[in-house]
Design a protein around this nucleic acid. Sequence first.
DNA 1: TCAAATTGCGCAATGC
DNA 2: AGCATTGCGCAATTTG
Lengths: 129, 129
Amino acid sequence: MPPKRKSTTDEEDDEYRRKRDRNNQAVKRSRVKSKMKTEETQQRVNDLRLKNQLLEDKIDNQKKELKFLKELFITQAQAKADKLVGINLNELLQDDDNDDNDEDEGEPSKKRAKEQSKGEGSSKSRSRR
Amino acid sequence: MPPKRKSTTDEEDDEYRRKRDRNNQAVKRSRVKSKMKTEETQQRVNDLRLKNQLLEDKIDNQKKELKFLKELFITQAQAKADKLVGINLNELLQDDDNDDNDEDEGEPSKKRAKEQSKGEGSSKSRSRR
DNA sequence: TCAAATTGCGCAATGC
DNA sequence: AGCATTGCGCAATTTG
């Protein structure tokens, strides 16, 4: 009596094995993928933190610049009030090279005019009678 | 024939089982922990992205404010300068590009005005004959 | 040296 | 039918 269909069991086993192997491969792929995603996410956190820091720095600089400009405005308004006394704008505006990066967080009124009125009395030659 | 020491094998088995169970528990804890950490990291990415957006918005607002103030200031100073002396304030204030890195994407407002006419004719004073 | 924690791996159930 | 994902247990290794 020859076995009628041994193939049933054997092939089933074979198929099972192959299937298992393939699944094991799939599992491996899936886990590698998962791990990569995790690491990538972690990296993203680092990048975002750095970017965040840069943005905050920029905000700080802009804030300083705004402060400077506002104070400059106040100063100017003050000058307008003092106009009658003879103050001139040179004192307030001649050296604006400080407007560049930072270093302008101080009050602008400190930068005293260098009296660069080359000709003579810059005060509009009022002495001319 | 009394069993000499069945305890050896049996207890070893018992011990093995207990050990396995404890490890299984540990594995479970470890995996829960790991998963939580992953989710937390992902959440951190979301938080950072939101924060980042807020910061960028803030930078944008500040930038607009700066632009406004500078233009206002230039206008005002220009007028005043024309009136009092003739100093060309463009020279002093025109460069509002000192922002930082990627500055204004807006129109550059044609920064030039290198015509520092200090030699003589301030725009006024000619009518006086 | 030991016990808990972590990690790689395979199995099976389940999702798609 | 078949790959992908996930929970679980085993065993080796790491950690404290």
